[in-house]
Structure formats: C-alpha cells, structure tokens
Design a protein around this nucleic acid. Structure first.
Length: 491
RNA sequence: CGGGGCGUAGCGUAGUCCGGUUAUCGCGCCUGGUUUGGGACCAGGAGGUCGCAAGUUCGAAUCUUGCCGCCCCGACCA
C-alpha cells in the first residue's frame, strides 16, 4: 500500500499535520496562522455544533450574536482580563483604503483613522457585559442564559491546524445570575455538558478539574476544565467553564434589584469549546492509516463500494447498493454510495480509511450470487461477510459497537497512562519515559508550580474534581499536601 | 518575537557550492486502450513569473541586498 502519512512512531506531530491535510479536513491559508476548514472538516464541526447546540438548549440557553469588534476602552475595564489578552489582540485602526500615488497598489488611507481603535474579539466578555447592563435591571431578568457561535482571533506566534490558529471557531456561553451559588452551579453544569459531549459523542474520555491560579482564565474567580490525553501522552484542554464572580458585573456596572429591593451586582459565568476539539478528536483515535472517526461525528458513517467487471455488473450491484442505502438512511445512518468509475476499489478502500469512515461495505459479483456483502470496520480493520438479511439493523448495531469500542480503547489508554509518583526524581523519569498524566502531591503554591514547569515543561492540568483527599508531601518542596494534582506536558 | 532550516509545475523533488543553449525526475492531471475483491498497467499529452523586488553580469534557479512565506527549536497560549 502506498504510504501517504508519516507514521506516528516516526514523527507524531508530522503525522498529525499530514493527516489533517490528507484527510481533507483543513489546510493553511494565504493568511499567516489562519486555516481554511475544508468541507469534510467543516462537516465534523457542524455535527459537533448540532449536538452541543441541542445540549445548550436543553439546559435553557438561547443563542444570540454579538459584534466581532470591541472598542479598545472596554478592555481596560477589567484589569486581569486585559493582562491576559493584551499580547495577542488584532487591532483595527482605519476604515478605508485608497489607491497609492503610482496607482499600482492599495494603501491604508491615513485620513481614515478611527478615533477609537477596535479590537477583534479574542473572547466576548467585555462587549457582552457592556450589553447586559442594558438587559438586566431586576432579579426577574435573571438568570440570563446566552450562547453565541462565533469566530475569535488571538494573534498566536506559533500555530497548528485546529490546535492553535490565529482565528478559530467556537461557542461561548455567557450567563448572569442572582446569586453566587447559582452561577457556580451553572459553571459546573456546563462543565458536565462538555464532559458528556466529549465522552458520549467524541468518544474521548476527559478528566474534570479546577485550574490552578496560574492557568486560570483572565478575569475568572475559578476556571474548570476537561482535560483529555492524546496518543503521544500529551494533555489537551478540551473545554473550559469559568465562574467569573462579580468581576465583570462590577467592571461594567451590571446591577439588579433583588427581591428585597436592594441593588446588587450579578454573578457571571462563561464557558467555551472550539474547533480545537477536532484536533483532540484526531489525536485521540486516529492511526497510521488515517483518521478514525466515532460514528456519532462521522460525516459519512457508511460507504458502499461496488466491485465490478462490466457495466452490466455495476448496474446489478447498484440496484442492491441503492436499496441498502435507502434502508440505512431510514435508520438515520448517513451513507455514501461511491460508484465512481474513475477510481478502482483498492484506491477507494484506502481513501475512506484515510478519511475515517467507520463502516465500509463492498459489494461484488460473488456477493450478488450469495446475497451477501463484505463489511469492514475502520476502528479494528476487521472484515466479515454478512447476509443482506436484516443488514440495516446489523449495521446500526455495528456503528454503536464502534462508537463504544473507540471510547473504551481511549479510556484504557488514558487509564494506563496515569502514573502516581511520590518523588521529584520519579516525576521527571515518568515524564520522559512514560508520557501521560502524572498524579503527584503539590504544596499549592504558584511558585512551586512555576518551578516545576520551568524545569520539566509539565504543568498542572487540573485539580481533579473527584479527587480523594490524601495526606502527602509536595514532590518539589517537601511541604505537606492534602491531595494529588494532575500534571502533564500539554498542547 | 529570538535561533536554525527551507521556498523550483497541483504535491514531492534534482540542479544552486563553481553563472552558460530548450530546468530534472516521481506522483497527480488530460486523451485513448486494457483493467477492476486492497492505493492498476501501457501509449501519448498538457502544465513553470525557479517565493517577490532590486542589483551585479554579455548572460542569473545559481552571486549580492531587501522583503514575503513555510517548517523546526525556544518564550506565549484554547
């Protein structure tokens, strides 16, 4: 078989880059750091959106849309928020172009300078809280549960398709509540939505946790996250949910009259996941033959490939294939019948493996004779010949089976790559020899965390929420610790 | 943004050190035919501002300068 991808073992990051391009998910664009998401990659994002959007609606949220541009002055209102984003903001300074003197090029018209520069949103807290001020007067206006699907821009120095690009697509939820407790519950609720989505839909197991002060969102009181483990042993933050306290309400003066008629600042949350999830999806499941997609996110769940020697034979196969396609579609399974005459079967097999289609059905002359088809599953590469009788039900079951198998495989991988260590030496050895999550005692100080990061490049991914308390001593400082935290090198 | 490497057809490349007719090869593409149960084969064909700009020279893919872009390594990050 002709090799199209660099193997994971040879060069993991090259494998990833090759895969994204060869599977036709995305490519680099003419704009530095920005990607073009191609139809096949975008179809995966659309599926993610559909599932998430339904979950948001089910938890009481509504979609809305806020501007791409944010007046510069808004940023300075919340001090730690500016600090967090100032270094990576794109700024609009002018609103007009004109022809250059020699007529050969177009230049920015110096007479069209904006009085106040506009920042292209790196996130929307400021414009949204500025808006919420006008929407909230009374406890009767609360809670306010809004989500928006949007693009954001963070001027990244080093970019990688899906994992880190200057512009990316995401959703950001922004909610306002009457009490701290309610906002905290919202923060946790959405974290659970993300967890459920990652595990049930993406088949990616995640660990829920709280971020340390260093890793916290700029402007948040508390940042919760879901952390996933990639096949190379590096961690990837797959989603975050923030309890913002009254920080933004105070910065934008959003007060409400409570039941007692007293004015109080509202309590806020924000939460988001991005197209980075596609990167997580790729790195969690795929192999050296290409993408492995969980059926729930696969744009094409089943592909049917005819194998024929004459046009007459193709016609007979097509009759069977089209009938099967209809039956499967009745069960809400997305099917592609690839009857292109320009490609040979072997080529198509390889192509759909590269693109991660979960199930492939091949139908040839032999099958016509015996009323069978050859069914191949992408996750295990197993092939079997099945009767056409009740095939639609069997395929439906197979897709569920694949979804579960992919998830279980990822869980096993994750679980076997969490290592408990009790000394700094052991910690460093583990990072170098058995990459993955490392559970270790930490004294709770930023100072220790930063030292460890500096020396090992590992960061505290989170303090797991379901952590059991356990007395121990910090692997770095030797000071007492009440619980282990989750370390890893991360994307 | 600092250090290193690289830009030659849609993709991957040879040629660059040491300047010299018509820029190499493979994949892909087009046409015709034979094929079709794991990335087919034969024959013919099309496709190039050698990243951009300026300079040196009788002559530049090749030398010089500037710029742009990409990749890798660091600092920063979802």
């Amino acid at each position: 078989m002709a090799k199209v991808l660099t193997s994971k073992e040879e060069n993991y990051s090259q494998w990833y880059n090759d895969l994204v391009v060869k599977a036709d998910l995305a490519e680099n664009s003419a704009v530095r750091g920005c990607m073009v998401i191609k139809p096949y990659g975008y179809a995966i994002w659309e599926k993610m959106q559909q599932v998430l959007d339904k979950m948001f609606k089910e938890t009481g949220h509504q979609n809305a849309y806020f501007p791409l541009f944010i007046p510069k002055s808004f940023f300075s209102k919340e001090a730690s928020h500016v600090d967090g984003f100032a270094k990576e903001c794109a700024v609009v300074t002018h609103y007009r172009l004109k022809n250059s003197e020699d007529g050969k090029s177009v230049i920015v018209d110096p007479d069209a300078k904006l009085e106040e520069e506009l920042i292209i949103r790196p996130t929307s807290e400021t414009i949204i809280w500025n808006t919420y001020k006008g929407w909230i007067q009374s406890y009767r206006d609360l809670p306010l549960l809004i989500n928006q699907w949007a693009n954001v821009v963070r001027w990244e120095m080093r970019t990688r398709l899906f994992l880190r690009t200057a512009e990316f697509l995401w959703q950001e939820g922004h909610t306002a509540h009457a009490t701290a407790q309610e906002a905290q519950e919202e923060t946790k609720r959405m974290l659970e939505v993300y967890e459920e989505f990652a595990q049930n839909t993406m088949a990616v197991p995640v660990i829920k946790g709280v971020k340390t002060e260093n890793e916290r969102f700029a402007g948040a009181i508390e940042t919760y996250c879901i952390e996933a483990l990639m096949q190379d042993g590096k961690a990837l933050q797959a989603g975050t949910s923030h309890f913002l306290g009254q920080n933004f309400a105070k910065a934008f003066d959003v007060q409400f009259a409570n039941k007692e008629g007293k004015l109080d600042y509202v309590w806020a949350t924000s939460w988001g996941v991005s197209t980075r999830l596609i990167g997580a999806l790729i790195m969690a499941h795929s192999d050296n033959d290409g993408l492995v997609l969980p059926p729930k996110l696969a744009p094409i769940q089943v592909v049917i490939v005819p194998i024929y020697k004459s046009e007459e034979e193709l016609n007979r196969i097509s009759t069977v294939a089209n009938k099967l396609k209809k039956e499967l579609e009745k069960k809400n399974i997305s099917v592609k019948y690839d009857n292109r005459d320009t490609q040979r079967p072997g080529f198509k097999f390889a192509e759909y493996e590269l693109k991660g289609v979960p199930v492939r059905i091949a139908i040839g002359a032999r099958d016509l004779e015996y009323n069978t088809v050859e069914v191949a599953r992408r996750d295990t590469k197993e092939k079997e010949t099945l009767s056409l009788v009740d095939l639609d039900a069997k395929i439906e079951h197979l897709l569920e089976n694949i979804q579960n198998n992919i998830y279980q495989k990822a869980v096993d991988f994750r679980d076997s790559n969490i290592t408990k260590v009790d000394s700094y030496q052991e910690f460093k050895n583990t990072l170098d020899n058995k990459p993955g999550f490392v559970l270790a005692h930490w004294d709770g100080t930023s100072e220790t965390e930063l030292k460890i990061k500096e020396e090992t490049k590992a960061t505290i991914r989170c303090i797991p929420l379901d952590n059991k308390l356990e007395d121990g001593i910090c692997i770095y400082s030797g000071k007492p610790s009440k619980q282990r935290v989750l370390f890893a090198r991360a994307y």
